[in-house]
Design a protein around this nucleic acid. Structure first.
Length: 116
DNA sequence: ACGGTGACGAGAT
DNA sequence: TATCTCGCCACCG
């Protein structure tokens, strides 16, 4: 079974991040920090952003379900994806506050304090 | 292999 | 309460 396990290096951070993001259910969101923590590197929130940026167009990964800790959509307008993210989230019935942030209390998925 | 970059987050002002 | 600054860590050229 594990005959080829000579190389037991942990999967690259990015791989774990993508797997986790893929696990975020439709209509729910997670934060860069939570994904990082779930990936085993609580301090690598920025790394998560970098990993998602490296997605490219080959997106089976619901990158739009990842927002910052406050529910804010932090993708620079330059990428042009910021607006798309908002659209995709609303399409999943995600509620936004008047300030334009995702209602995290309502949609936050995963994270340390999620389950008791 | 090295160094710069930043889609974060928490603390300080 | 709103901003600004600093530290962290993975990605990319």
């Amino acid at each position: 079974m594990f005959g080829m396990a000579a190389d037991s290096s942990p999967p690259p951070f990015r791989t774990r991040v993508l797997a986790l993001v893929r696990a975020v259910p439709r209509g729910r969101v997670s934060s860069y920090g939570d994904i990082a923590a779930l990936a085993g590197s609580p301090r690598a929130a920025r790394g998560v952003g970098a990993a998602l940026q490296g997605l490219g167009d080959d997106t089976d990964v619901p990158w739009w379900r990842v927002v910052n800790r406050s529910g804010r959509l932090t993708i620079p307008a330059d990428h042009g994806l910021r607006v798309l993210q908002r659209t995709l989230l609303e399409r999943e019935r995600v509620r936004f506050t008047p300030g334009g942030e995702v209602d995290m209390e309502r949609h936050r998925w995963g994270g340390p304090g999620e389950v008791a």
